[in-house]
Amino acid sequence: MPDTSNMPHVDMLRSPLGRARGLGSARAGSTHWWAQRLTSVALVPLTLWFIWSVLHLADASQVDVGDWLGSPVRLALMLALIAATSTICNLACRS
């Protein structure tokens, strides 16, 4: 009898419809997509602000940095930068 183990054949008792039903979408993609777009859009001005700020602080002392970050607006921007960066890291590594 010839060896047929390498011939194309089906050895799973499952219909094509059943197979397709087991796959399908994850149903959570649009939230992920939107969050990634929101954070990336927010990071455009934040990144430009960050580069500009770092250039200003090139030879700053600890007191200078303290004074600089003492402003509530700058602190909020810095926290937003770190939060948005961490979020996009998490989202983008999974997409």
Partner: peptide, 22 residues
């Protein structure tokens, strides 16, 4: 993402001690 550690380390040393920041 890894480079952000440099930023957080910089902020952390600025918040703790002058010698560490220097």
């Amino acid at each position: 993402g890894i480079g952000t550690l440099l930023l957080t380390a910089w902020l952390a040393t600025a918040a703790t001690s002058e010698a560490g920041f220097e």
